[in-house]
Design a protein around this nucleic acid. Structure first.
Lengths: 347, 347
DNA sequence: CCGTAAATGAGGTACGTGCCTCATGACCTA
DNA sequence: TAGGTCATGAGGCACGTACCTCATTTACGG
């Protein structure tokens, strides 16, 4: 039972020795404090790389006697998906506290770019290590993200990316793949061909347009026998979506498939429930929420594609932990997978 | 920016004060050391519960100057799934080290219950905190699990549960739900009815028989137009599975669907590749491995149901962390979800 | 060559917990 | 009541890092 081969982890002391400097200097380099010549910084960094030093995150948080502070800024709309995201944050917040990670949630009016920008501008780098945001590509938001990053806050985008900014990381699913998957399933569900209606929330939303493009591409390439109807835009609203679905059903009594790539699923389910002969209709929707679960259970929805909000929040927290203190370099994180739910594998 | 409402986390000092005892006594209780009257133990435990004290795992590991040691014992067979499990362990091991979790992997001859029992018996509770095993329900294994648990090692089962033992936790998917899902998809893929062949590895394996029962139940309840053929047993072997598939295809030229709920997918893909008219055949298999990915890409496999080995390992490590020091009480952990993969959402 | 500022070293305390030693007090038994 | 055992308290050192103060060295301009 000897310990040969189990080399002790390198510590700051080892770095100091290897670099031929004092502990204080290593500390200054590690924590980006001033008063070190560029040449010395390089010496220390070389030593760190050479002996493979990795700062002990727990000891670090312990020593500063303060938690890592992560702020989630999430739209506060009637959108059930955003609510489930916020729920997931709340659930994780307790466990995260055990790891000295303090999580705060801010709900903001949906689609209010100004409010999001203002919230970002209000973050103090001394009390906030990381901000995780869900936002659209508005100029004011982009500016605020870059400004927060410059102030030293790690900004991560969730669900919908802002690739034009300096955000450190994006966490979300591949929506083009989600659209392809919906097409692939519907195509297999309808081997005899037929009409398929598509409903979106708003094609100005990046995720919706990505889903649509994936859906269309696969439909065109693999299932030419299916005829696409739409897309119509329901603006993620319950009543609007309900009206659209009812209209489509009335207009096309022979409709074979339906893909709702946006929200407003309560309306979708209501319209399907009211339809007389919807049982032969194959329906795919997005996000596992209360209305879609109900639809799956009752059979009016066949498949729900889900973003897995719990997994997204878990990864966001893990990434925050790594980024905020660990290395400012590459980040390995699990990709978020598209959850596919039928009535039979509902949790 | 004040800190009102952000109460400091409770520490051992708080527990001592609340219980009216000294730090030393709290320490003795927390670490199960002798020399404390039962009445005092209760007092301390009451105080812990009252102020909601949670031991700081990181500080604890730091203080003992040793890592949490977790051993994964995984079958070393030609089974590609076990290989991907082991790969996932290796991938996580590096990151885990940052959190003072030292992970060791042992590969054992598959289906060798004696070897697994011996490996478990060989674990020293002083150097091993947690063992994660994949094993069948053999008497020698059951005994060894209980013995290790008694010695103070946290034992967790992975993929296949041993509910008859004292194992602390099981991590794996709901295989009955997986079987139901396969049936539900095939049923929707084949609205005109037809013959569906089922191939298993061995029905003596708990996961296989669970999948079969879920599959059968949903088929009978929802898709009476489909005729089941089999199951035949391919014993998770490449060549045997290939022969069985070729035989079934020859015997039933009009076969509409195929469900391989076991391993041996290299054989499945080979047989399908060799078949002349397999393009109309809907095929569902298990576990995302090299051969099934190939099958998805080429189109001979329609859907792969996956256990998500990475997620399983992640949860295993998280659970080990919580169980080994945290609370010996209830453990909240994310359920492992069945991954559903088509060509279109392959990562 | 001096004055000054910047760079670096030396060493301390703290974080929350584990583990050790030693002292003190309570209680039991002979 | 003496001698023993057991329960408990008091205190200190350690883990790896952060952050502080104070001294010392080095570099540079005049």
């Amino acid at each position: 039972m000897n310990e040969i081969g189990l080399r002790r982890r390198a510590t700051v002391h080892d770095v100091a020795r290897a670099a031929g400097v004092s502990l204080a200097t290593v500390d200054r380099v590690l924590n980006g404090r001033p008063g070190v010549r560029a040449a010395t910084v390089e010496k220390v960094e070389a030593a760190i790389a050479e002996i493979g030093f990795q700062r002990d995150l727990s000891a670090s948080l312990l020593a500063r006697a303060r938690d890592l502070r992560v702020v989630f800024i999430i739209p506060d709309s009637s959108n059930e998906f955003m609510a489930s995201l916020a729920d997931a944050v709340t659930r994780r917040a307790g466990q995260a506290l055990t790891d000295r990670i303090y999580i705060e949630t801010q709900r903001l009016r949906a689609l209010d770019a100004g409010a999001l920008a203002k919230a970002l501008d209000g973050l103090d780098a001394r009390t906030t290590d990381c901000a995780v945001i869900v936002g659209g590509e508005e100029p004011s938001v982009l500016t605020a993200v870059d400004s927060a990053t410059k102030r030293g806050i790690v900004v991560m985008t969730l669900v919908s990316d802002l690739p034009a900014t300096q955000r450190h990381h994006f966490i979300g699913v591949d929506n083009v793949a989600a659209g392809r998957t919906a097409a692939s399933l519907l195509g297999r569900f309808l081997p005899q061909g037929g009409k398929v209606a598509v409903i979106a929330g708003s094609l100005h939303l990046r995720d919706h347009s990505e889903r649509l493009s994936g859906f269309r591409a696969t439909m065109a390439a693999e299932f030419p026998a299916l005829e696409l109807i739409g897309p119509s835009e329901g603006h993620d609203e319950r009543s609007e979506t309900e009206a659209i679905v009812a209209d489509v059903l009335a207009r096309h009594p022979d409709l074979a498939g339906l893909y709702n790539l946006g929200a407003g699923n309560a309306g979708l389910v209501a319209a399907l429930d009211a339809a007389p002969s919807a049982s032969a209709l194959r329906v795919i929707a997005h996000e596992l929420t209360e209305p879609t679960r109900r639809g799956l259970r009752s059979g009016v929805i066949d498949v729900v594609l889900d973003q897995n909000p719990d997994g997204e929040i878990r990864e966001a927290i893990a990434a925050a932990r790594t980024l905020a203190l660990g290395g400012h370099g590459a980040l390995v994180s699990d990709p978020i997978e598209i959850g596919i739910f039928l009535r039979d594998n509902l949790r």
